[in-house]
Design a binder for these strands. Structure first.
Lengths: 248, 248
DNA sequence: AATTACGATATGTATGTACATAATTGTCAA
DNA sequence: TTGACAATTATGTACATACATATCGTAATT
């Protein structure tokens, strides 16, 4: 009955009182194994922390941590009085790395360069006001910027910045640092919303990206807030060759 | 100096020895606050767990948990002997919800329906073998499926399933449940890789999705594993109107 | 000077214990 | 029958303590 949790070559039970380092990982692995071998089926209630701790010869807190981390990635579901059960629909979310354009380009061994197309101080247009929940007449900075990889257009960035949220940016000419990098460096944010879609390039967009009008583009939009003050909204267009990947 | 961490209305210091429930959340929040208020700048080394524990009047383990969770979302970076520092490029990843087609459609108040276009048992083709790291001749199930929202094409799904990893699927006719739902329900996975891109619809794809050939489509690819056994690879095509959103 | 060994240090994790909290179940009364 | 409330129970979290482990700086060795 007692099934010890020593990492690899568990031959005999762990004597009670001996501390096995990393045992919470071993427990995670063991539970994962039981799920994969269908010892425990989706939807099934598994033994309580107390029982598992006894079975694995460890403290309840250790089992707790293992289960908590499994719950974080969605493999099990836990409820207080009800216990822990294997998730019916395991793993519902992926982590997506938010790239910094320059690093992304350089990571591919390409030469990075950017060019500011326009930079204007304007009152927030209707659509942006609505999206960011700002009052009429709020001063904003509108920047359009083209990023290159080895002198080929990589990304067209169309950005609106809420000046009051990052006053220092008002005087920034973006000569050496792109708005992207500047904001990443100086404007921390706590919340973000991203949108991903495909679209057909407009005439202007096609010209900028050196593709045919109507050709598919990958659209990545992002809005960020600090606490609840909007900072910036950006729409980034990539030619279709672009691909965003996330593994975990 | 001593700055108590009581959740909301902390007026006076927490007497040592009093246990503040959820204090690790409060500590997380306080550290977040210090980052956003630029008390601690990106790249800066922050005080050690021991010191913070003393300052916050709690146990080191509690600070540890707060910092560990902040490290998980990329806001701070930790190294053993070196201590904890504020990340230079804070918040680099977003959580992306992986949708279940049916729920996604129904969540928009639309009628869901799907249709199996083809279902064949084949040996893994070269590209799939390479991608999933399977030996030649591995039996796989190839399923093509069209999902509808209110009878309009919503998603074209092209899926390869590693039969040995989910033997039960061999006899599944997918009459009532789509492959998507079936796998979500019966084939838990622990790892996944996703790819997002834009593409031009091929002739066949255009016909299926009822759009013009060459029109932009949003491509969502996903490969899943359980431990290190590949389960399935799927390529999902959406007409350009599709938009994937994530807020956090 | 380059290499190795070692001690110091900050984080990482395990344990036993105690109490907190949410959710279910049972109980009693209206 | 039903609604309010208390008891129960599994998970959630805190704490003190102890040991584990990675890594940095420094001293000893080559």
């Amino acid at each position: 009955m007692s099934r010890p949790v020593v990492p690899a070559k568990d031959v005999d039970p762990v004597p009670a009182g001996i501390r096995v380092p990393n045992s919470f990982r071993a427990i995670k692995a063991e539970i994962l194994k039981r799920i994969s071998e269908r010892v425990w089926l989706p939807g099934e209630l598994i033994p309580g922390e107390e029982d598992l701790a006894r079975e694995f010869g460890c403290a309840r807190v250790t089992v707790n941590r293992a289960l908590r981390e499994l719950a974080e990635i969605g493999l099990v579901e836990r409820k207080r009085r009800a216990g822990t059960r294997i998730a019916e629909h395991p793993l519902r979310e992926a982590r997506l790395e938010i790239p910094v354009v320059r690093s992304e380009v350089e990571a591919r061994g390409a030469q990075y360069r950017f060019s500011i197309l326009s930079r204007e101080r304007l009152e927030a247009p209707e659509a942006m006001r609505a999206r960011l929940d700002l009052p009429a007449g709020t001063p904003m900075l509108h920047v359009r910027c083209l990023h290159f990889a080895d002198n080929r257009p990589w990304q067209f960035e169309d950005r609106w910045i809420h000046i009051a949220a990052v006053p220092d940016i008002a005087d920034e000419p973006f000569e050496r640092m792109s708005p992207n990098e500047w904001l990443v460096k100086f404007a921390p944010f706590s919340e973000m919303e991203i949108g991903l879609s495909a679209a057909a390039a407009s005439g202007e967009e096609a010209t900028l990206l050196a593709i045919q009008p109507g050709a598919p583009v990958f659209v990545f939009e992002r809005t960020t807030w600090l606490i609840d003050q909007p900072i910036t909204h950006v729409r980034m267009l990539h030619p279709q060759s672009y691909r965003m990947v996330s593994r975990f």
